[in-house]
Design a protein around this nucleic acid. Structure first.
Lengths: 146, 146
DNA sequence: TATTGTTATACTCTATAACTATA
DNA sequence: TATAGTTATAGAGTATAACAATA
């Protein structure tokens, strides 16, 4: 009879922040799924890719670039090192510079491919100029962090 | 080639997904901080606002609109009900329709204001047409959920 | 059979405080 | 004093499986 199949009113639908959070959730889920095949979390993959591009980089620098706190870098680096994906050499008495092992290079190559496919799925259809505008906008948001 | 203490190379900087995740993290932190004054989490506030706009709505419908699983709606609804912000009346034998209590109305008004200020902070400078485009893009991303 | 709600559990990201060691 | 790393803990969102009661 009066089947209430109607969509309910969502006052948040006009808020860009609402859609930003939802979109982020969806892409995180997709990225997690892709990286699970490599037994990596999104943060793991980002860290590997960053180390690959910056051999000898320290945890602090990685965290700074990725927005990850020092305290949260420690267990991640330990996990990646234990798996033999990264190896560290002392920079000075308190810092360790990390580089990818040969196995880490292989896994990181897979992570890069997964990231690229992931990005292409969600934003591959976006023209380059619009992509640039979007990234600039997102950076301006992230830079408003207190 | 003076490469000292500079910003490290971030291969992810060209990926929109990377910036999307970071932007989402920043706005979530801001929203959490604003709503903490009302003793609400972001999901609480969204739920209250949705109930306010749809008196008698059920948990399932709320979760559907907000992207929250049924299993995660239960403790939230219980918490809001225990605080006296929402009250439920049976729709049928298995569903409960929720409405805001008078105290819930007051708190929800504060949540709406916080949400509006929050959105204005991060996207208030964005022209209306660009905002529409951004929202449409974010919705297209969220709709790609498997 | 399908839907609604519940319970239990687990994962991931994020955050802070307090601590050690080194610069 | 400041920096790098560690440890412990907590909060929030998200997810699945299994279950009961109802439609």
């Amino acid at each position: 009879m009066t089947k209430k199949a109607k969509t309910i009113d969502n006052p948040l639908a006009g808020h860009a922040g609402f859609h930003l959070r939802r979109a982020s959730s969806v892409i995180m889920a997709d990225l997690s799924e892709r990286l699970a095949e490599l037994d990596l979390r999104p943060a793991d993959a980002s860290t590997l890719i960053l180390i690959g591009a910056n051999p000898g980089v320290t945890q602090s620098k990685i965290g700074e670039a990725l927005g990850i706190q020092r305290a949260n870098m420690t267990p991640m680096a330990a996990r990646l090192a234990e798996r033999g994906l990264i190896a560290g050499a002392p920079v000075d008495g308190r810092s360790i510079g990390f580089r990818l092992t040969s196995e880490g290079e292989t896994v990181t190559a897979g992570a890069r491919a997964a990231m690229a496919q992931h990005d292409a799925r969600f934003l591959g259809a976006l023209p380059a100029d619009q992509r640039r505008d979007l990234i600039a906008l997102l950076i301006s948001i992230a830079d408003k962090r207190p």
